[in-house]
């Protein structure tokens, strides 16, 4: 059987909010390593990879590897019924066709269980190699969210250029154009820093619609990491403290 208890249940609620707009149905892979997911959006332009490591749960048991197919919108409906302070436990039998979410209030005076029907989902699993990227940018996740939101009111795509001077986000639309440059800044608190690690300057263009969707993960982490190489998907990573990560991969636009 599979059983995973998370005292900070709000984390699971936030994880789901970070992926449900991008992906409709997804297979969760349960193993001794943890609770993981890899899924693409319906247009196959982006991919999300999630890992919640087993040692991040207060209790974790997985007798054999299992795949649990879920409709993320329905899973979200159930997790929204958990209070932000609730402890959440997920349970499933090896042969079962349901997963149970149990919510316990912090005072243990309210216990709820919600049973979600599992589904068979045909999904491709892609092998993602470890790559050395030409540029890595770490910046406040709220700042990245703000930039993506602001630029999407001007244009549909953003060109991200990383150089030793900083990271520049540019867009063009019918009403005009916009450029936002964030310079490396290590003189402030760690969570407010912008740090650029550069092997070589890189410029890529992406659809803002997807980047905006990725920023739904902002509540999970104070900083976001962008990794870019020429003609490769950008990796947008949010680290979940002591547990794992949500990583998004977005294919670049084809240059004219």
């Amino acid at each position: 059987m599979f059983e995973a208890r998370l005292v900070q249940g709000s984390l699971l609620k936030k994880v789901l909010e970070s992926i449900k707009d991008l992906v409709t149905d997804a297979n969760f892979d349960c193993s001794n390593n943890g609770f993981a997911l890899q899924a693409m959006d319906s247009s196959h332009v982006s991919l999300v990879a999630l890992l919640l490591r087993s040692d991040g749960f207060e209790h974790y048991r997985c007798d054999r590897n299992m795949t649990m197919g879920m409709n993320l919108s329905n899973m979200s409906k159930m997790l929204k019924c958990a209070g932000n302070e609730d402890i959440i436990t997920m349970k499933a039998d090896d042969t079962g066709d349901v997963v149970t979410f149990m919510f316990e209030s912090p005072d243990q005076d309210k216990i709820s269980d919600f049973e979600l029907k599992l589904m068979d989902i045909d999904s491709e699993h892609l092998g993602i190699p470890d790559t050395e990227y030409a540029a890595t940018v770490k910046m406040p996740s709220s700042e990245f969210m703000r930039i993506c939101r602001d630029l999407s009111s001007i244009g549909d795509t953003v060109t991200i250029s990383v150089s030793k001077d900083g990271v520049k986000f540019s867009t063009t639309g019918d009403i005009g154009q916009a450029n936002i440059t964030c310079r490396q800044n290590t003189s402030v608190d760690k969570e407010e820093q912008t740090i650029i690690e550069l092997q070589e300057p890189v410029t890529l263009t992406f659809a803002l619609r997807y980047l905006n969707s990725f920023t739904k993960a902002t509540p999970l982490a104070p900083t976001v990491q962008l990794q870019m190489s020429k003609e490769l998907p950008v990796v947008v990573q949010y680290l979940i403290a002591d547990m794992g990560y949500v990583r998004y991969y977005l294919a670049p636009k084809i240059e004219d």
Partner: peptide, 14 residues
């Protein structure tokens, strides 16, 4: 859309 790469073209099928 046609001006957009398919993400699967960058990664190997497992």
């Amino acid at each position: 859309s046609p001006d957009q790469h398919d993400i699967t073209s960058f990664f190997s099928q497992r």
